[in-house]
């Protein structure tokens, strides 16, 4: 089994992301309440929970696509949500996200993957080299000149991964990245996730409601239910003996939602 690449400094795990007291309300409905969580550098953290429980909203807030109503998010100790606009822009450059739907640009595969590098002002030679590396990482070398719209669903999602990691983000957010894929593509995407984590040392938070995917990929897991993070722990601990009865019910498929 592949090992994740958690970073240690002086024998202690280093926290990359600190979430404190995060809350979000939509139209009078509280979708996230008092979320507090630390995510360590180099780990894969799975956020599991039923559909509509706030996983996507949490990832969108972390990706700075939504604003939280309460709480703080720190990346490497720097607050990235709230008023400090410069911090937001700098943080955005270090965080990337793969959505459920790949939503590739109506352009070539090369230009899709190169986008994140172009907006960072990199030179053509560097861009070419990094795009080639990322296409190799997702197993799509030779697809450079293909139009993105001509790809299959699995290939589209692999390109979505390539363009999300080409600029080597510190934090990669994955929102149900295999939701619309067939089993063989699920295997490929999970292998890509492991490779990104291992070779690029990218910290990953994955939102999913697939128990087996959590088991196969994650180091730690959190259970989000009705906007509350009711339990976090190492995967092997939570899956063997969950501290919260609702987590256990969800894992064994007894939870009705």
């Amino acid at each position: 089994m592949l090992q994740s690449a958690c970073c240690r400094e002086g024998g202690k795990n280093v926290v990359l992301l600190e979430i404190t007291g995060l809350g979000k309300t939509f139209g009078g409905k509280q979708v996230l309440r008092d979320i507090s969580l630390d995510v360590e550098k180099g780990e894969i953290f799975a956020m599991m929970g039923p559909s509509g429980t706030g996983k996507t909203t949490l990832l969108r807030i972390l990706n700075l696509l939504e604003r939280a109503d309460a709480g703080h998010i720190k990346l490497d100790g720097m607050v990235i949500n709230g008023g400090q606009n410069n911090n937001r822009i700098a943080a955005r450059q270090r965080i990337s996200m793969v959505f459920q739907s790949s939503a590739l640009f109506n352009d070539t595969v090369y230009n899709n993957v190169a986008y994140g590098l172009k907006v960072r002002g990199m030179d053509k030679h560097t861009i070419k080299s990094k795009v080639d590396q990322c296409l190799a990482l997702v197993g799509l070398i030779g697809y450079e000149n293909r139009k993105a719209k001509t790809l299959s669903g699995g290939e589209e999602q692999r390109i979505a991964f390539a363009r999300a990691v080409v600029f080597e983000p510190d934090l990669l957010l994955l929102d149900e990245p295999t939701a619309n894929l067939d089993p063989s593509n699920v295997v490929k995407i999970e292998e890509i996730i492991r490779t990104i984590n291992r070779e690029l040392n990218t910290t990953i938070i994955i939102a999913t409601h697939h128990m087996n995917q959590v088991r196969r990929l994650a180091d730690r897991v959190g259970m989000l239910l009705d906007g509350e993070l009711i339990e976090t722990g190492r995967v092997e601990d939570v899956f063997v003996k969950a501290a919260d009865e609702r987590t256990r019910a969800f894992i064994v498929g007894e939870m009705v939602y």
Binding site: S96, M97, A103, F105, A164
Partner: peptide
């Protein structure tokens, strides 16, 4: 989702506008 992806990949408001206009 196209706009959000462009932001998520580090695009500025201007970069995102170019993406949307191209689409």
């Amino acid at each position: 989702a196209i706009r959000e992806n462009a932001y998520s990949l580090g695009g500025s408001h201007r970069d995102v506008a170019v993406v949307v206009l191209k689409e």
